[in-house]
Design a protein around this nucleic acid. Structure first.
Lengths: 336, 336
DNA sequence: CCTTCCGGTGCAAGCGGTTACGTGAGTTCG
DNA sequence: CGAACTCACGTAACCGCTTGCACCGGAAGG
């Protein structure tokens, strides 16, 4: 029924071995022969059977992307970056979302992926997440995004530095009571989360400001969570005059909370976010922008490189951050 | 090196054929034998080689999701819905994004996917998109999302009805000059886009209101686009007192435009969106909510069903919409 | 002029499963 | 009680490609 390599071989007057080599661009094929084979394959609309090729070669021809979420802003974007570079390669992108490792619905990806991928791209997941840890035993190349592990390539940003930029900006504006809206209660399994908190604490300390648990609240990386967190901060005895939210989504929630309390972001309470969400621009939110799609793209490229030359050592990529100042931050003004 | 089916056969004292049958749950295997084989496989940590299995069986063991975008809100969500049901199956999810068919960067998915998938899930893409049309020649099962085609299963919403709900709501509030922020200029290759426009026109007509090109503007489904569209509408000789934006993102842009013109959404100009974006809730936007993740999930399930029983005819699923009224719409009040 | 080497090619043995077909033992039934 | 089935299972022929090895003719080198 379908074309096989034998049909091409016959038609081109060569052996199947030569067809295989010619089509894959291997050396030791006469350019003339190669071209002839190509023509025949083209004319007959031949595509190699991936299954056969994979079986014979032992390569799976795909890489797995393991992510806690697909639909959330950050993850969808990283995924998009990954896909953009994998598109051009001849590897399949297998998508597997596992949910939040700290939730009960979390499910380990491990089993399903055995024997069917050549490498892994892991987004944000801590390396000791159930099911994720086992990946390393497979000894296939792995590129970690937003975290790292000895011997593993990694791609990410400098979360501490980013967080410091945000908080320093508030310090520079004269704020002395700077709140934090974090993801969840420490210790967090997520590296970026921990690091952003570190940056916050360090910057406060360097500015000679006190670190008060009373200035911190958890926002769970959602808008609602951010809103609740801000509301809770406002209700404290001595509320902050500025707040650093560890994600734009939480920051947007914070803005909303402020408005519903009759406060104006910037004028009454300054808010800085983190991410570079489009909505940040539209809601005039100052934020630390990270190159999210690029993170995905670089990670994918790193994995491809690793697959091409398995002898290479691990690579660590750190992408630049940029602070975009907008109306949600302003010099401190004691509230009337 | 790695376990093969022969190792299991030897260990369990049966033939490889029996192992194969036992592990796949085929009939005609003694329950006792089956269990023994299962135990052995488990103990030896055996996983079948997908490549070998696919080659021998002729099934690709994967389905392709073809989408114009990955990172955009709607698509990421549909994808998430798809993944959630495919996760439980033993099919791989191959992701392929092709870009907007009307843009120059659009690339056809066709070639890469030949021979490597058992079926397709196509999100939003018109069936005559370059590269997408060819999919149907492969005669593999295809489930279309947001569009349809004779002989193909499809999953979606009733865009005309949704649009009518939105516009009727504005009519009921007494508005007579109701604007439209659409995606792009007609004719659009996207079915939902056309249908939402139809719903808009029909409802106006039924309400005895005039259909004026002057009340319509394109927002390209982005926030910026929506903002520009609203701004342009406001600048017209007789601006609308209410606007239906065909997506929440455009509606949010519209809200922003209103605010920057000193107008208050709801009080001065009513705005209705479409989608059910989280941000809509937070910006108090009235909108028609569609069950986006469910759309993906249902589509995936439809495809799985089709793969299980290829004799079944195509299925058409239409998911319910819900209108959520918030502060961005209010009875018409002539502007002071 | 005879090795040696090398680029281009073919041969054929896998890769690790699936499945059509065959076999033998146990049932059912006229 | 034998024919006709059924059931559980084994045998072995693929599935379509990759690749180690052999081979061959011509170029390079001694």
């Amino acid at each position: 029924m379908a074309m096989t390599i034998r049909d091409i071989a016959r038609e081109a007057g060569v052996s199947t071995a030569t067809v295989s080599r010619a089509l894959r661009g291997l050396p030791n094929v006469d350019p003339v022969t190669r071209e002839r084979v190509r023509q025949v394959a083209e004319r007959l609309d031949y595509v190699v059977s991936p299954a056969a090729s994979r079986l014979a070669s032992g390569r799976a021809g795909s890489i797995a992307v393991i992510t806690p979420y697909i639909a959330r802003w950050y993850f969808a974007r990283v995924l998009s970056g990954i896909e953009s570079v994998l598109q051009a390669s001849d590897l399949d992108l297998l998508l597997s979302s596992v949910g939040d490792p700290s939730e009960s619905n979390h499910l380990p990806p491990h089993r399903k992926l055995r024997r069917r991928v050549d490498g892994f791209l892991v987004i944000s997941l801590p390396t000791d997440t159930p099911g994720v840890g086992e990946i390393f035993d497979l000894d296939l190349p792995v590129v970690l995004i937003d975290t790292d592990r000895p011997g593993c390539s990694s791609v990410g940003i400098d979360d501490v530095a980013g967080s410091r930029m945000a908080v320093q900006h508030l310090v520079n504006l004269g704020h002395e009571r700077i709140g934090l809206i974090s993801g969840r209660a420490l210790p967090s399994p997520f590296r970026p989360e921990e690091n952003r908190i570190v940056g916050y604490h360090e910057t406060l300390a360097e500015a000679g400001l006190a670190i008060e648990p009373d200035l911190e609240a958890c926002g769970h990386f959602t808008i609602e969570g951010g809103e609740r967190a801000m509301t809770s901060l406002l209700a404290r005895p001595r509320p902050p005059t500025a707040v650093f939210a560890m994600s734009d989504e939480m920051a947007l929630g914070a803005l909303r909370s402020l408005r519903s309390h009759g406060l104006e972001p910037g004028r009454d309470v300054s808010v800085v976010g983190f991410d570079g969400h489009e909505m940040a621009e539209h809601l005039d939110l100052t934020t630390v922008v990270q190159p999210v799609e690029q993170i995905g793209a670089r990670a994918a490229r790193a994995l491809l490189d690793r697959l091409d030359s398995p002898t290479e050592g691990p690579v660590h990529v750190e992408l630049p951050l940029e602070m975009v100042v907008r109306g949600s931050t302003a010099p401190r003004r004691d509230r009337s």
